[in-house]
Nucleic acid binder design. Structure first.
Lengths: 347, 347
DNA sequence: TTGTAAGCGTTATCAT
DNA sequence: ATGATAACGCTTACAA
């Protein structure tokens, strides 16, 4: 009742009175290659015995798998769940299976997880890396493993990557703020030195403010180092300095933006009249559950297509599997601007 | 440059001048079984060649894998991401790997996905099923595969399952509402006939209102059938009927609760004065990003420990792997009541 | 149309 | 302390 022996291809062959080869042909989609009655007999036996071919044996023999690794920087983040969802749906449909590994925001664990994926025989990996500096990944890539980066870049090597245009993203936000008469965009960010996305958004902020407003905004970047200054304190500092301005806060990501919201409330300011608020919306569920809709007033955002990053990266990886010699691509997914009440002062 | 041949155990053996057996012993953690210098030579060769044992070959030979399947009803739901996160962290730590498959809320896809997991040789599966009626899963279980259900039950078979006590969950909510002087709890739910969680919560609502308030609350259950009546309409209907009462809405889950929030706003009622609002909080990230904290006023909830359900289910599955003959367990995880402003009328 | 036989990269059994 | 050898369940030339 407990220890069931596995039904193998030999069992099926014997029962059907044919050779393993024939059964193998049947399984692998060449039923034309055999007689009508043979085919029917095999079908019947498989159905009766509940036979399921072992992918393990088959993979060993074929020296290839339909396993795709997905290396996630931090699986508890909602961005990750969108990424997983997008990649999973795309790959499932094409007969591939996702092997997910979490790096828990730790480069060493990332290495270890990648190693383990390799042992499992993945045909390629999607990587949402923990670290901008990542020699191990480069080495593995050089050893021949197809790799596609998701959203986060790695320095010193030209990987295939799917990401969004952070410059465009910030441009939407800042040009909108300008049109709405805000005179002083502020940028709230967590430590960004080893995080490619934060880095790029910060840079884009500086460039675009300079281009549109004509001044150097270095002073308007507030870096929230945990344990030092919180969002409300940073904001207060900004307000003290900028009396006479009409400020608007741009959060670097969803979390920072929501923090900014609470900070503004704490200081008793009114949105959008006394201060504006907007930011990137880093993940996408059913919009009704998403914070920009729950907050009052609804928050202006630029939506980062996290799910689409997952599926597009998966698509790109499958391409690379077929044409390994293609040069690396950088796919920039468009983000979508959503104007909402938190930044609308005039119409 | 492209087609790298894989380094095998034979290569290592040859290079180190020993037999495959010895190398195998080295890999599998029996380095005591060989001489000092042999061990050192093998270590060196492995390091130089970058040798990685093939899990595929090893699994084939050992007739077992450290793969655990996770069958998810709907991967786009935040509850799922918490489940994945919990299970993944627990299993990673113990050397198991998660194989995630999405059923996209479709029983047929669930069957197909389960079949595929089986072919991949999973040692057991965690199942967050799409359907209360699920013969296929029962059959697979009977064939000897260890199965642990996550949160959602299946009828007609006594599976191991990890879930929360829905009765307790509703009891927290309703008894609190009563203490706060609300005279009429309302229950908002989506179609529940084939969903064990919704079913149980609805039943618990009826029982507990009966016990605490002493009347039959059947009329106070509002089922939101898509395309028929929306939350605001249902609420309006309730208010028309119950003039003179002090109503409080209980959402069946996070989504319904947030919908109720918007419906209440639409009708221009004030929370918690004119109407109360509370519900289960079905997933748990960093609380600062979670809707009960973003909504104004903050919403009273009972927190369902989704992440913990994932890790506990994983733990239970590993137990079953070791002791397959143990009788099925039902693990009820405690949920935690969080009183917040949306239901506090008096102190 | 069907079968034979040789592996795929490991580990297990039995020797030495 | 170490090795030879036979599987594990499948695919794939090559035959017939």
């Amino acid at each position: 009742m407990s220890a069931k022996k596995r039904v193998t291809i030999s069992d099926v062959a014997t029962a059907a009175g044919v050779s393993k080869t024939t059964v193998s042909r049947y399984i692998n989609g060449h039923p034309e290659l055999m007689g009508e009655k043979t085919r029917e007999r095999i079908r019947a036996v498989i159905e009766m015995t509940n036979y399921r071919p072992s992918d393990i044996a088959s993979n060993l023999k074929k020296r290839t798998t339909n396993l795709i690794g997905l290396l996630i920087a931090d699986i508890s983040s909602p961005f990750s769940s969108a990424l997983i969802s997008g990649a999973s749906k795309y790959l499932d449909k094409r007969g591939y299976t996702l092997l997910i590994a979490d790096s828990a925001d730790d480069l060493d664990k990332e290495k270890h997880a990648l190693s383990s994926l390799l042992s499992k025989g993945v045909s390629g990996v999607l990587v949402n890396t923990t670290s901008y500096s990542n020699d191990f990944l480069i080495q593995v890539r050089c050893d021949g493993l197809p790799v596609v980066l998701c959203d986060r870049q790695v320095r010193d090597y030209n990987f295939d990557i799917v990401t969004t245009d952070q410059h465009e993203c910030l441009y939407y936000l800042i040009s909108h703020l300008k049109r709405q008469g805000y005179t002083r965009p502020l940028f709230l960010v967590e430590p960004w030195e080893n995080n490619a996305v934060r880095m790029k958004r910060r840079e884009a902020f500086l460039e675009i403010v300079h281009a549109l407003y004509g001044y150097d905004a270095s002073e308007d970047v507030y870096t929230l180092v945990p344990g030092e200054e919180n969002a409300a304190q940073a904001l207060q500092r900004a307000l003290n300095r900028d009396s006479g301005e009409i400020p608007a806060v741009i959060g670097c990501n969803s979390i920072t933006t929501v923090r900014a919201f609470h900070a503004i409330r704490e200081l008793g300011l009114s949105i959008p009249g006394e201060i504006g608020l907007c930011g990137p919306e880093d993940w996408d569920w059913s919009s009704e559950m998403n914070w920009p809709f729950i907050v009052d007033p609804n928050v202006t955002t630029v939506k980062i297509p996290a799910t689409q990053i997952g599926s597009r990266a998966a698509a790109l990886l499958l391409e690379k599997l077929e044409h390994p010699e293609q040069p690396p691509q950088e796919v920039l997914l468009p983000c979508v601007f959503h104007e909402r009440a938190s930044t609308v002062r005039m119409r």
